[in-house]
Structures are given as structure tokens and as C-alpha cells.
């Protein structure tokens, strides 16, 4: 009798929801808290059904009080719990940043290693919904810049589930950033729990001529660009770092040593974005291998605009990536 291979398709939101439920069943020290996460199920539905299964003690609606949401997670984590708290939009980190970057990120170090901070800050980013300048940003570089934090940036349902499981099991503060336009994206997700190690990039498409490093929504656009470019005889390798801290430098550097060309794609503004760090790493470790200057495809240095045609132009798109790849091939 042939073994039946189960292939299930879930959206990113469903995959994240499954990871939360499975981990909460496994470990009673895990609780979820945030704005509208319980009765409402999260504004994008990621925490749907948790209240019904786990009750009010473990699934907590909080007031709109971001400093207290993050700060209480710090206190709970330092005293034996494993909070998974939600920051509804990454843009809201401004009102609560101290609790994340001065308290959570530094506590273990400042205390000489005598504290454990197993907390996950789930948050959501990105443009595409005309949510304008305070509900659409990509700020992952802010978090990458702070020692003590880990930063996960999943692009697929499979990665979303496996990375969230790892984040929850990690004994450090993890900023887990979900892109709002990916919640509805479908993909295969195994039912059983699995953990994807942090610091392991995924080669989403193998190629020989150009390395494209992309994150979150841009992974999908890079793959579409790669498909178009293959018709022109250009073979593109698409790498998704999956976590920015820790960053899998080796996979990126090895790919560049093979292709000799690098294009970095992200939705953050170009200036001092995560791509600047990746470009610097390649400059330090593989400059001699480059046959063309590194290209970055990123948002312009403006706030995110509201009006749909402006926002569409703001967010990097497939033709921008195609153009950049062709430029490095022609160089």
C-alpha cells in the first residue's frame, strides 16, 4: 500500500494560527496578549479561535497600551512565562520602543546573563492597502540594529509556521514581522509542528547568473521577475534570508561567489535599510567576486503615500527588479 503523502494548503494567517495553537497546547507557559487578539481574533485573524480553546487567562485582550503590552511581556518572560504579544502595526512601535530596545533587548546582557527573556513580539508591516504613512511601513532595519533582538521576516506559509515555532521556543526576545499582503497567500504547510532554525536562509529558486536577496512580499516579486528573466536567458537565484538577526551571511556570500552579481530587494526605504547591511557584508567578504556594482531595489526615501497610484509606485515591483537584474548582467 502506497504511503499517502498529505499535502495541505494554508494561508499565511492560517499557518501562523496553527503554530500558535500547537505551541500553546504543548507549553502552558505560553500566553497571547495584545489589542483585539482575543474576542476579535486579531485584526487579520491570526489569533482566531485561541480564546475559545485556551480561555481568557491565556488569550488576553489588552487596552491600547503598547508600552504596557511589551513591558508586561518583559516582566512575565523574566519571571518564567513565554509571552507571545502582538503589536497590531509595526508603525506603533514608536510609542513603546523603550520597552523593546532598552528593556527586553538589553536585560540579559546588563544583568550579566542572569535573565532569560523568552518573548515574541508578533507584528505586521508593509504597504498595499492604502493604509498611509503610519500603518504601512517596513521597519525591520530598526530591529536589526539592536543587539539582543532576533528578527524574523517570513515570506511563505511554510516558513511562517516553522519560524514562529522557533521564535516561541527561543529564549531571547524575537521580533516576528508579518507582511499584511502575505496573510492571504497560500502554500503547502505540514500539519505536524516543525521548527525552522533561525539564521538559515532559503534558496527559493536556484540560478547561475545573478543572486537576488529578497524579503517578505518581495520574495514573491523576485520569483516572478526570475521567471520573466529566464525567458531572456538570465538565470536568477532568489535567496530569502528568513531571519535578519541572525543573518545567514554564508548562503548569501556563497551565492554571490557563484553568480558574481547581487541585487537586493526590500520594501523598506533604501537608505539604511536591511539591504545596506547585506551589501556591506558582501563588500567585506566577496568584493573580489563581484562583476558588477551591487544594486538595491527598495522603496524611495519618502513616507508611504496614501493614494493608490502613488503607493503602487512606492512599493518595489517586478519590472523594477527585472530592470535591476538586467543592469547588473549588462555591467
Amino acid at each position: 500500500m502506497a504511503t499517502e503523502v498529505q499535502v495541505r494548503t494554508l494561508t499565511c494567517a492560517q499557518a501562523l494560527n496553527e503554530a500558535l495553537k500547537q505551541e500553546m497546547r504543548r507549553d502552558p507557559a505560553i500566553y497571547v496578549a495584545g489589542e483585539d487578539v482575543a474576542r476579535y481574533g486579531g485584526i487579520f485573524g491570526v489569533t482566531a479561535g485561541l480564546l475559545e480553546e485556551f480561555g481568557e487567562e491565556r488569550v488576553r485582550d489588552t487596552p491600547i497600551t503598547e508600552s504596557a503590552i511589551i513591558g508586561s511581556a518583559v516582566g512575565a518572560a523574566a519571571t518564567g512565562l513565554r509571552p507571545v504579544v502582538e503589536l497590531m502595526f509595526v508603525d506603533f512601535i514608536g510609542v513603546a520602543l523603550d520597552q523593546l530596545f532598552n528593556q527586553a533587548a538589553k536585560m540579559r546582557y546588563m544583568f550579566g546573563g542572569k535573565a532569560r527573556l523568552p518573548l515574541v513580539l508578533r507584528t505586521q508591516c508593509g504597504g498595499g492597502m492604502s493604509a498611509a504613512a503610519q500603518h504601512s511601513q517596513c521597519l525591520e532595519a530598526w530591529f536589526m540594529h539592536v543587539p539582543g533582538l532576533k528578527v524574523a521576516v517570513p515570506s511563505t506559509p511554510y516558513d511562517a509556521k516553522g519560524l514562529l515555532v522557533t521564535a516561541i521556543r527561543d529564549d531571547n526576545p524575537v521580533v516576528f514581522i508579518e507582511h499584511k499582503m502575505l496573510y492571504g497567500v497560500e502554500g503547502n504547510v505540514p500539519e505536524e509542528p516543525y521548527a525552522i532554525p533561525f539564521g538559515q536562509a532559503d534558496i527559493k529558486r536556484e540560478g547561475a547568473d545573478v543572486t537576488v536577496v529578497a524579503t517578505m512580499l518581495m520574495v514573491h516579486k523576485a520569483l516572478a521577475a526570475a521567471e520573466q528573466l529566464s525567458a531572456d536567458g538570465i538565470s536568477v537565484e532568489v535567496i530569502d534570508p528568513r531571519t535578519l538577526t541572525p543573518l545567514d551571511e554564508d548562503t548569501i556570500v556563497e551565492s554571490v561567489r557563484k553568480t558574481h552579481r547581487l541585487v537586493i530587494v526590500h520594501e523598506e526605504v533604501k537608505r539604511a535599510g536591511s539591504g545596506a547591511e547585506i551589501a556591506a557584508v558582501v563588500a567585506e567578504r566577496a568584493l573580489d567576486y563581484l562583476d558588477a556594482p551591487v544594486q538595491r531595489v527598495a522603496a524611495p526615501f519618502t513616507p508611504v503615500p496614501f493614494s493608490p497610484p502613488l503607493e503602487q509606485r512606492f512599493i518595489p515591483d517586478v519590472p523594477d527588479i527585472v530592470k535591476a537584474v538586467k543592469a547588473v548582467v549588462a555591467a
Binding site: A68, G71, S72, G75, A76, T79, G80, L81, D98, Q99
Partner: peptide, 22 residues
């Protein structure tokens, strides 16, 4: 922890208290 940030402690105290009840 002592705290270098004025007002840094209260949210952490709330979290430790939540943990105690939990």
C-alpha cells in the same frame, strides 16, 4: 533590575505580577 530609564520599571512590574497570578 535597577533601571536607567525613568519610568522603565512599571510595565515590567505589571508583567511580573501577571506572571505571579498566571
Amino acid at each position: 533590575g535597577a533601571n536607567g530609564i525613568v519610568g522603565g520599571g512599571p510595565p515590567i512590574a505589571a508583567g511580573a505580577a501577571l506572571s505571579a497570578r498566571y
